[in-house]
């Protein structure tokens, strides 16, 4: 469904991704792990067309998208829930969701129902400005907004960051429902326990390169997993 081969990406003169290759099949849940600054968010930016300088090959559903503009990639069925949520604070919950559906081909009310059923909390706060929601509610809105265009691949950038355990639990069970519905998920996460329990395979990214890639079942069996980042991180 998604295949990255030798993807490079840079901000100005600073190259962040040095030839990353990743592959995932339809319906799979894959985790992308790695320490701060490894380039995880940059990788998602490359897939969604939101970093200017990117090269290599990114094939989604048989189509090359590495040169496509961001709105075409959304149209093709890829959605990102970005780091920091980036909800439109002055707009109501409803308007945020409506904007999420700009590229929807299909019935709007059905999508609203779907998202409100997944996150009943959003239905209760329809008319409230997104900026006044709690962090957890904003994360629900960010996820709901991405689902509005009925994507086939959902990319999640640290969706649990800074959230209380109860909210983490709620969002996690929503994501589990999405996974069960057959949606393909790529989730960036720093906390190993969550990521390994949730995904079936994982890639570990360090300094812009994939250093390890395995099924989560095998990764969990490694006794020294907690030290993995440290041992793999280049010293100095």
């Amino acid at each position: 469904m998604l295949r990255l081969s030798e993807v490079h990406a840079s901000y100005g003169a600073a190259t962040v991704l040095h030839g990353v290759s990743i592959e995932m099949g339809a319906g799979e849940t894959v985790a992308l792990l790695g320490p701060n600054g490894a380039g995880k968010s940059t990788l998602l930016a490359a897939v969604t067309g939101t970093i200017r300088s990117r090269s290599g090959s990114i094939v989604f559903d048989g189509a090359e998208i590495v040169r496509a503009p961001a709105h075409r990639i959304v149209q093709a069925g890829v959605r990102l829930v970005p780091e920091g949520r980036l909800v439109f604070s002055p707009f109501s919950v409803e308007d945020n969701l409506r904007l999420g559906a700009l590229r929807l081909e299909g019935e709007l009310s059905e999508r609203f129902d779907y998202v409100y059923r997944l996150f009943p909390r959003l239905a209760e706060r329809k008319k409230q400005p997104a900026g006044t929601l709690s962090g957890g509610e904003q994360q629900m809105l960010a996820i709901g907004r991405a689902l509005m265009s009925r994507p086939r691949l959902l990319l999640l950038d640290e969706p649990f960051l800074g959230l209380a355990p109860l909210v983490v639990h709620q969002i996690r069970s929503a994501l589990e429902k999405l996974r069960a519905s057959g949606l393909t998920l790529l989730i960036v996460e720093q906390k190993l326990d969550i990521a390994l329990a949730f995904a079936s395979r994982a890639y570990v990214l360090i300094k812009g390169a994939v250093v390890l890639h395995d099924t989560t079942a095998d990764l969990v069996r490694r006794a020294n997993l907690a030290d993995l980042y440290l041992s793999l991180a280049p010293r100095g």
């Binding site: 969604t48 067309g49 939101t50 503009p69 961001a70 709105h71 959304v74 149209q75 959605r79 990102l80 970005p82 980036l86 909800v87 439109f88 604070s89 002055p90 707009f91 308007d95 409506r98 904007l99 999420g100 700009l102 590229r103 907004r145 991405a146 265009s149």
Partner: peptide, 25 residues
């Protein structure tokens, strides 16, 4: 209007707007 909201979204955050599928150009 929805397109007015889309314009405003671009003003609020270009990146987030692009992620909605708004054609920035």
């Amino acid at each position: 209007t929805l397109w007015g909201k889309a314009f405003e979204a671009v003003a609020l955050n270009r990146r987030a707007a692009a992620l909605m599928g708004i054609d920035l150009r």
